[in-house]
Amino acid sequence: MVQFNKEKITELNTGYVKEHHLQQKIDAKKKRGLYRRLAAFMVVFSFFAFMLISTITSQMVSLEDKGKQEKHLKAKLEQTKNKKSQLKDEVHKLKDVDYIGEIARRDYFMSKKGETVFKVPGSSSD
């Protein structure tokens, strides 16, 4: 095998060789510029992707909280409607004289004329 001594080889200084070296330098600069632009683009893209993902995540959490709150409020509304119905029935009953008399005898131990009230030990009014 023949080995060449690089110190003995001289390079041609023709216009073509100089132009070729210049073109290689320009291509290397273009390649570095391309890599820098791509890196900058990736940083910007990553930033916007992070912001988008974080916004979507926070909105999903917010929607989930609103859904739970809606269920809670619907249950509370149903309870309120039931209580309203009970109170309307109570108002309707309180217009009846016999019902008022029954409550007065039960809660306040009142009696009609000629009626005797007995309290049994161990029984409670409620």
Rank of each mutant, 00 (worst) to 15 (best):
Q23R: 08
V44M: 08
D107G: 02
L94T: 04
Y108A: 03
M60L: 13
I56Y: 10
K29P: 00
E70M: 11
K119S: 03
K76S: 08
D107H: 11
D27H: 03
K66Y: 02
F4E: 06
K71T: 06
L52I: 13
A104W: 10
K113M: 06
R106W: 06
K29A: 04
A28V: 01
Q59M: 12
K31I: 00
H21I: 09
S111W: 00
K112L: 14
L12N: 03
A104T: 07
I103R: 14
L94V: 05
K88M: 08
Q23P: 03
R106F: 00
K81T: 10
A28K: 02
N82L: 13
R36Y: 05
A75R: 04
M1W: 12
F47R: 13
L52A: 13
K84P: 01
R105F: 01
Y35R: 07
T57R: 15
K83S: 11
M60E: 08
V44A: 08
S46T: 15
Q69P: 04
L12E: 04
R32Y: 03
N13E: 07
D126H: 12
F118W: 00
S125P: 06
Y35D: 05
M1N: 15
F50D: 12
V43A: 12
T10C: 04
K29H: 01
K81W: 05
I53Y: 11
K71G: 02
V120F: 01
F45M: 08
H21N: 06
I56H: 08
Q86V: 14
G101V: 12
G15V: 12
F48P: 05
L22P: 02
D126F: 12
M51S: 12
Q69H: 11
D27N: 04
V2C: 09
Y16W: 05
E70V: 14
H20G: 02
K93D: 10
V117T: 11
Y35C: 02
H20E: 03
T80M: 07
L63T: 11
L73W: 05
P121T: 04
D107F: 09
G67F: 04
E102L: 13
A75I: 03
V17H: 01
K81D: 09
K66G: 02
L63G: 09
I53V: 14
I56N: 08
K6S: 07
S54F: 11
S123E: 11
K25D: 00
K66N: 05
E70D: 09
E90L: 14
K112F: 10
T10H: 14
F50H: 13
G67H: 07
A75W: 02
V97D: 14
M51P: 05
D65T: 15
A40V: 15
H20N: 03
V44P: 01
Q79P: 00
A49M: 09
R37K: 13
K112C: 09
D27R: 03
K29S: 02
D126Y: 13
K119A: 06
I100T: 08
Q23N: 09
F48C: 07
L94H: 10
S123T: 13
K8S: 07
L52G: 11
V61Q: 12
M60F: 15
M60V: 15
D65C: 03
V117R: 05
F47A: 08
H92S: 11
H72G: 00
S125G: 06
A75G: 04
E115G: 00
G114T: 02
I9E: 01
V43F: 09
Q59S: 12
L38A: 07
Q24R: 06
